[in-house]
Nucleic acid binder design. Structure first.
Lengths: 126, 126
DNA sequence: CGTATAATTGCATCATGGTGCAAGCAAGCA
DNA sequence: TGCTTGCTTGCACCATGATGCAATTATACG
């Protein structure tokens, strides 16, 4: 929303020779979802519990209101970190371990393929 | 700061059998650093430029004040995403591709080793 | 020295986001 | 139908964070 559409920008963008697909892999939404300690706590808790909990179960012992947990889970869900399924009155949340792990690996691969040592821009002595 | 020290908590934490080291790998600081679109833009730009730029170079064409860029770079540096080296008057920033990729891979591995399908908590039909 | 350049930091302002309470909605049950 | 439970959403409040301008520090140059 802020970064518009790739934003050609006034400055020279000609040097995008490497790290081509990096930008597409870096999703602010994903990182924003994992940037909050409370959400991270819920994430770990959800993973530790066997990757499936109801909102109420996660709220128990979290120290915050159930509405807060509900909102945090919504953020995680919109980021694709977890998925939720309604069964009766309850909503069961599941960690998307495979999906998230895949994204992180793609990102790691893109980074490794990026910026070869002594590629360019590095000043020798100046 | 918020999550205290592992927080034994009132609720049952007995089910931390899996995803043991997951919590230690999930650093709010790292994700927070990558959660801002502007910082992500600087990150991509820095990677695309050959992984080495001065603060001024990054500020050019970024559309924001140099002080803003400086602050964003500080956040990235404190998160270990980049490293900065002062040479003369200028500060050269470098993307820590290997470090970041390593962290992401460790996290991906931990997630894959986590939550085996049909482990527990999953309701069959209820 | 004094000046210019590069970058950081202080300060004020504004936007975003986390939180709790209460109301609303959906689903099961008597 | 009325009631209870599980969860979501609206609203207000407060903390955090992003931004721009100005002042400060550090380094190079004359």
């Amino acid at each position: 929303m802020v970064q518009a559409s790739k934003s050609p920008g006034p400055a020279a963008e000609s040097s995008s020779r490497c790290c081509a697909g990096l930008e597409d892999l870096l999703s602010p939404r994903l990182f924003k979802a994992l940037s909050d300690p409370r959400r991270l706590q819920l994430f770990v808790r959800l993973a530790g519990e066997g990757c499936a909990c109801t909102v109420g179960q996660l709220a128990d012992g979290s120290g915050v209101d159930l509405s807060v947990v509900s909102r945090h889970l919504a953020v995680l869900r919109e980021a694709g970190v977890i998925s939720c399924e309604k069964r009766g009155k309850e909503v069961w949340c599941t960690v998307q371990t495979g999906e998230v792990a895949g994204i992180l690996r793609d990102l790691a691969d893109a980074l490794d393929a990026c910026c070869p040592p002594g590629a360019a821009g590095e000043p020798a002595a100046h």
